[in-house]
Design a protein around this nucleic acid. Structure first.
Lengths: 161, 161
DNA sequence: TGCTTATGTTGGCCGTACCAACATCGACAG
DNA sequence: CTGTCGATGTTGGTACGGCCAACATAAGCA
């Protein structure tokens, strides 16, 4: 992604003061940092792939549909992302012997290795993103964000959680 | 926009704790609320149009290129959005007598009226978005966001500010 | 005068998120 | 056992925001 600037000369006052606008700017900044990081050290992988690798490493092998439900990624997008991961030998698909229609996706040792490398990239991005805040402010910021996100979130797929 | 859920069952822990992830979730929520609001009371208008109307009302008539620079919207997108605003008689284009290549865009009384109506929609969204926070927490949240956004922001177009 | 810059416009690209349709397989009711 | 229903993986398409390239034209300046 080519670094969204999103801001130029300061938005109109009625917009600049809005929380939704500020959140949008912050997210644009975060997305820019992330995609720069992935572009530099990610071998063409992006957020989708990182989320899927992380889910596989933390929760173990799963079917594609389960992966989609757990990560909030659409089934069709899971398929596409897994194709790219599989072509790099970072995950392996195998047919479930019980349900022959289902694929069991497993993360490979190379996948874990790449995941750990991406972890460091993402950690570096966090540091850059939160740089203007002190440690106490970062805790506050995360706490407020969590409060907003937890209290809300329409939560559509609440199956098997 | 059909209400992004983005979250399903809690992301992997290594992602859930990241500030960039939380900001993304918050922004997804904000965008969903905004597009719901615009969809319900906006007569087909969206963020682009609101930003342009606000810029015109606050800074007065301007050329399309200036509008683009001030709002951070690309020239080509400004053209498209202005076409829709003009077709609703919310703005008027007139050729600058000095620079015959330039259009002077003016907000019409109907445009101001619509802008005020959209202001209320957007205000309602802010309220919904910040609902889980107390007044003091909202101030903190905005202050932290401003600190992050102001300290950073690569600022590419810094001309005439 | 000619060269360069700025403007508005058209058309296109990319990434994220969705949705619809399809063939296939399992499970379960009758 | 059969038929129906649901779930799965896949393909293909949509929408939207953001961005870029190219173009014709007008202004400004050398």
């Amino acid at each position: 992604m080519p670094t969204p600037h999103h801001d130029t000369c300061r938005a109109p006052a009625r917009i600049e003061g809005r929380a939704t606008w500020q959140v949008g700017r912050a997210q644009a900044r975060a997305a820019g940092l992330l995609s720069s990081g992935f572009e530099a050290h990610g071998d063409g992988l992006r957020g989708y792939h990182y989320r899927l690798l992380a889910a596989l490493e933390e929760w173990g092998p799963a079917s594609q549909a389960d992966l989609g439900r757990r990560t909030g990624i659409d089934r069709s997008d899971v398929t596409a992302a897994l194709n790219e991961l599989e072509s790099r030998d970072l995950v392996a698909r195998s047919v479930d012997p019980a349900h022959r229609r289902r694929n069991i996706v497993t993360i490979t040792p190379a996948g874990i290795e790449r995941l750990l490398a991406l972890d460091e990239v993402v950690d570096g991005v966090q540091e850059a993103f939160l740089a203007p805040l002190t440690a106490a402010q970062r805790r506050q910021f995360l706490a407020l964000l969590s409060r907003i996100n937890d209290a809300q979130a329409p939560r559509i797929n609440d199956a098997q959680c």
